[in-house]
């Protein structure tokens, strides 16, 4: 799906970000173009989730320097809801439970916010129910989950399906899926992965944050990046993920030591 004329969707340059005065990202560079699937791997604490939250505009993180551009436009001044409306989607590693808020109503309000941005008409309750029933098929989700409170009492797998359902409804331009595969059994992983594949469009892109190569067996990435200490230290193709699975992250330490010696 990638062609030489593909437009850049996301461009991150020398991004430094901190939380509670502690710098977590130490200069991230990343360019994502239309039609691309990127995988970001790395140890716990390497900054993967922070990067995803910073792109989505989480208020706890402070940008120290650098830039994030979405379709050529600086998004650092945009509120999280504005980023979502222009087509940036974050699939949460731990989807939040919101007691008392109906999942169906939440999905409808969110969908209409995005539709408004796309200059599409807002959907009333009945129109939305038709749409959501159709999209439920993508993640093979039981409609009973629509009647419950947002993510409340959902199993880990159900929560992740609910995330992909939101992705299916919001039709984002870039989806950043933070450990969508964690907590999924083999069947659920296949369903979720097939949903993500079905939702990939030539004019959209996906960033998968994952620890395991098993997700990448289901969704073939065009690029695999390895993050360590708040930076992308290595970029390759799917083979890199396979190597990583075989030899672990030790080679990163080796690399770091060699670099230090060279200094």
């Amino acid at each position: 799906m990638i062609s030489s004329t593909s437009e850049t969707i996301l461009s991150i340059e020398n991004l430094h970000a901190s939380v509670e005065d502690q710098e977590i990202l130490h200069g991230v560079n990343l360019v994502v173009k239309e039609g691309e699937i990127h995988a970001i791997m790395g140890r716990n604490g390497s900054g993967k989730s922070t990067l995803s939250k910073v792109i989505a505009g989480h208020p706890s993180y402070k940008i120290e320097s650098g830039s994030i551009q979405f379709k050529g436009k600086n998004i650092l001044e945009l509120e999280p809801e504005e980023r979502a409306r222009i087509g940036i989607f974050l699939g949460f590693q731990y989807p939040v439970e919101i007691p008392g808020v109906s999942n169906l109503e939440f999905l409808r309000v969110a969908t209409n916010s995005r539709r408004k941005e796309l200059l599409k008409s807002e959907l009333d309750t009945f129109q939305f129910e038709d749409l959501v029933k159709d999209r439920l098929k993508i993640v093979e989700m039981n409609p009973a989950f629509l009647e419950r409170s947002v993510n409340e009492g959902f199993s880990g797998g159900e929560k992740k399906r609910n995330e992909i359902l939101q992705m299916a409804l919001l039709e984002p331009i870039i989806s950043i899926l933070d450990e969508t595969d964690s907590g999924l059994d083999i069947d659920a992983l296949r369903i979720v992965a097939s949903g993500i594949n079905r939702l990939s469009q030539p004019n959209s892109a996906t960033i998968l944050i994952t620890h395991y190569q098993r997700l990448l067996n289901e969704i073939t990435p065009d690029f695999v990046h390895i993050m360590a200490d708040g930076k992308i230290i290595k970029t390759g193709n799917k083979e890199l993920a396979i190597d990583l699975e075989k030899s672990g992250y030790d080679f990163i330490d080796k690399n770091t030591k060699e670099k230090e010696r060279a200094k």
Binding site: G57, P80, E81, R83, A84, F92, G100, V101, E105, Q166
Partner: peptide
């Protein structure tokens, strides 16, 4: 109101006022 709940709603494009309304409604629901 829980910041993480609010961010979750905002990250779906729901504006601040509406997100707060939803959270309050959820709080009243019991």
């Amino acid at each position: 109101l829980q910041d993480e709940e609010l961010f979750y709603l905002l990250s779906r494009g729901i504006d601040n006022r509406h997100a707060n309304s939803l959270l309050l409604q959820g709080y009243y629901d019991e």
